[in-house]
């Protein structure tokens, strides 16, 4: 007997569900982070991570397997040239789901699903302190990217200002992501 997929069924026909998951995965690889409902995010996570694993493998067969799901060749190319190699040292767990509360309108629980930062691969036996430090670094990096034009001195004043200034620069998340690597080095030097 075929085992049903774990998790909720997304309230659609099987074909519609396949299309929804494929489109969600395409958007995720295109934008790096997407906002969707919790149920969809939870269904998307194993689906997208399997595709990334294929992207890490990188051979022609893997590429053809991915193309059966994602039809956008540009996205598949990005998956195999950028996203896959980025997670070379990470044994799974390429995405992160953060709940962001109910949606106004229909009260649906929403979540943000994103590809985790590439960064240096954390060893599996990492200490708690190391994890905290890494968390601080990533926060610093994101707040820095959020306020690109703002001088670096305002950094120290705290995250509230950062979030206030984030609205202006929210239109350029792609640029922000590209410059994340450089900023990471900067924050490392500061510490």
């Amino acid at each position: 007997m075929p085992t049903p997929t774990k998790g909720p069924r997304l309230g659609a026909g099987p074909a519609h569900e396949r299309l929804m998951l494929a489109n969600l995965a395409t958007s995720l690889f295109q934008h790096g982070r997407i906002k969707t409902t919790e149920a969809k995010a939870k269904r998307l996570r194993p689906y997208a991570e399997k595709l990334i694993t294929l992207g890490k493998r990188g051979d022609l067969h893997a590429r053809r397997l991915v193309l059966t799901k994602i039809t956008d060749k540009a996205v598949v190319h990005e998956l195999f040239t950028e996203i896959g190699p980025r997670y070379e040292n990470r044994p799974g767990g390429y995405t992160r789901i953060t709940k962001i509360g109910p949606r106004k309108g229909d009260n649906a629980p929403m979540a943000v699903i994103e590809l985790v930062e590439a960064g240096p691969a954390t060893p599996p036996a990492a200490t708690r302190r190391a994890a905290e430090e890494e968390g601080e670094q990533t926060t610093a990096a994101t707040s820095e990217t959020a306020e690109q034009e703002v001088p670096a001195q305002e950094q120290a004043q705290g995250a509230e200002e950062a979030t206030a200034a984030a609205d202006d620069t929210a239109e350029a998340p792609a640029e922000a992501q590209e410059s994340t690597d450089a900023k990471d080095e900067d924050s490392g030097e500061k510490k």
């Binding site: 953060t98 709940k99 962001i100 509360g101 968390g135 601080e136 926060t139 994101t142 959020a146």
Partner: peptide
Amino acid sequence: KLPHTACATCGTYNNRQVLN
């Protein structure tokens, strides 16, 4: 804020900026 959820006021969860 709701538990296990990003804060709607400052947009952070687990010291990580999630929302603007």
